[in-house]
Design a protein around this nucleic acid. Structure first.
Lengths: 209, 209
DNA sequence: TCTTGTGAAACGCTTCACAGCA
DNA sequence: TGCTGTGAAGCGTTTCACAAGA
């Protein structure tokens, strides 16, 4: 059972997709599944599913398949999703507010415990159960509250500056909604959620189909 | 100048990244760039940049580099982003409202012209300049307004049903915020924007660094 | 001289095909 | 018998290295 070292990036991404689908199977009461079944739902090759799983160990029973509940547990452990992550949100505008009010995040183990903005209009307000604080206090508060992840949901102009402050505070993982490239030192991971870019992906091959 | 046929999916994805960065360069007044410079900003290999561009033609000048403004125009054309796309939004909750109020989308050529919900609480309300309509009227309204794309921002339970109605109405591209697999016929393209999954990506390798 | 454009090599992921087991 | 686990083959992408050209 190796972990991460030789595992393709693509495999790790698919692990998240598998977990989401297996969670769904579990809700539907499906106790066991084969690589064939899972692959069909996700429009992929069954060998791919088995190869992906096999990077982390032999979880299945030959002739039978995989046990859904056990596999969900394994996937959560592999993906570091078997615990709660404490998050700071910076930028309580439209998207920021939507995230604070979204119960799905906490349910999945992502707990936004701090929220920051630079506008006196929102500082002090309570949104989704969190009181918005002044972004000037970010570093101190992040350390006090043992926050590990940041979500940047500011306008694009502010994002690079905010990223610097976030990194300064010791945070190693940033989810960034601002449509721009963040420049971060080695050891800090950024995952972009760029909605115009996602629409771009949607559009680029629409015509030929 | 070929288009799409033999171009790797990865290249198309990077084209969007190039365009975003070049837009940024343009704002900063940078009139020309080399593959070297662009690659450094994006942490990639310069040969990759040149190879990607070369799928669509020779846009550069040897010894000099590429002209930023011309390249932005080329990229927009290649990616079908040199026009406005008309979009229907389904689900005017937290995320849906945030999208309706987001001016960045229109600026990038994505115009949400219709919004739908099933709750009497929001139907008839005006959000971000669009009046929310009853989702029961979706097909007729989409056809009347010549809408080409849909954004699904409903709760996950409603998403599959909404997707069926959207597809029925003739739409060929769906941006989906609901964290679930949509089952769509050949010829319909779905791009997911799954925030818990993005946080999962962020988290899975944080510990080893 | 400097940087592009591009065959060819290197590399890594996906798929195959089948042995191994329940 | 049926499905997993996996070496090896296949295949597509990335990187190299250099000719071509401004």
């Amino acid at each position: 059972m190796i972990k991460h070292a030789t595992v393709p990036e693509e495999t790790m991404q698919r692990m998240l997709v598998y977990l989401r689908e297996l969670d769904c199977m579990l809700r539907e009461g499906k106790e066991t599944f084969s690589s064939q079944e899972l692959a069909e739902i996700l429009h992929m090759n069954p060998a791919q599913v088995r190869k992906d799983f096999s990077y982390f160990g032999g979880f299945g029973k030959r002739g039978v398949g995989y046990e859904t509940e056990a596999m969900v547990r394994e996937l959560r452990a592999i993906l570091n999703l078997n615990r709660t992550w404490r998050i700071a949100l910076i930028g309580v505008g439209n998207i920021g507010s939507a995230l604070l009010k979204n119960p799905e995040l906490r349910r999945q183990g992502f707990d936004i415990v701090l929220a920051f903005d630079n506008s006196p209009r929102v500082i002090g307000k309570r949104v989704g159960g969190v009181t918005v604080e002044d972004v000037a206090d970010l570093a101190a508060r992040v350390q006090a509250e043992k926050v590990e992840l940041a979500i940047i949901a500011t306008p694009v102009e502010a994002a690079p500056g905010v990223a610097d402050v976030v990194i300064e505070s010791g945070i190693k993982g940033i989810l960034c909604f601002a449509p721009c490239q963040l420049h971060v030192p080695e050891g800090v991971r950024v995952v972009p959620v760029d909605i115009p870019m996602a629409l771009g992906q949607l559009v680029y091959r629409l015509e030929e189909q």
